[in-house]
Amino acid sequence: SSYVCVECNFLTKRYDALSEHNLKYHPGEENFKLTMVKRNNQTIFEQTIN
């Protein structure tokens, strides 16, 4: 599966890399929402900020 930060167009295969991205680029933000999307037999988790 892949993880994408929709706000930044940041894409990674690792959830911990997304967490690091959030700490660096969205410090103090807590209203993240992950949406699971299936595309071409791949699972993509799209992160948006509410």
Rank of each mutant, 00 (worst) to 15 (best):
F45H: 15
T35I: 08
I44A: 10
H21A: 01
Y3I: 04
T35W: 06
V6Q: 08
T43D: 15
F32Y: 13
L11H: 12
V6R: 05
K33T: 03
L18M: 10
N22S: 03
N22W: 00
V6N: 14
K24F: 06
F10W: 12
C8I: 01
D16S: 14
E29N: 11
V6M: 05
P27C: 05
Q42T: 10
R14G: 14
H21S: 01
T35H: 05
S1G: 09
T35Q: 12
H26M: 01
L34K: 10
L18S: 01
N31I: 06
S19Q: 15
L23G: 15
E29D: 02
E7D: 11
Y3A: 02
N40W: 02
F32W: 11
H26P: 00
T12N: 12
E29R: 11
Q42A: 11
N9Q: 12
L11V: 08
K33G: 07
E30R: 09
E46V: 01
E30V: 11
V37P: 01
S1L: 05
C5H: 00
C5G: 00
T43V: 13
Y15T: 11
S2T: 13
T12C: 04
T43Q: 15
H21R: 00
G28C: 06
K38T: 07
A17V: 13
C5I: 00
M36S: 11
S19I: 02
L23F: 11
S1N: 06
E30C: 08
F45R: 11
T43F: 10
L34R: 09
S19K: 12
Y15M: 13
I44Y: 07
N50C: 01
G28R: 06
K24T: 09
F32G: 05
R14Q: 14
N41C: 13
E7L: 08
N41T: 07
N22T: 06
K38V: 03
A17H: 15
V4H: 15
Y15R: 11
T35S: 12
M36L: 08
L11F: 12
E29I: 04
F45N: 10
F32D: 06
L23R: 06
N9R: 10
I49R: 13
I44R: 11
F10A: 02
T48I: 06
T12L: 07
N50V: 11
A17E: 14
L18P: 01
H26I: 00
E46I: 01
N40E: 10
Y3C: 02
K24V: 08
G28T: 08
Q47R: 02
E29S: 11
G28A: 09
E46P: 01
S19M: 11
S19T: 11
V37W: 03
S19Y: 06
S1R: 01
Y3K: 00
D16Q: 12
N40L: 05
H21K: 00
T48C: 10
T43W: 10
Q47P: 02
L34H: 05
K24Y: 12
H21T: 00
K33A: 09
N40F: 03
S1W: 04
V37R: 09
L34I: 01
C5P: 00
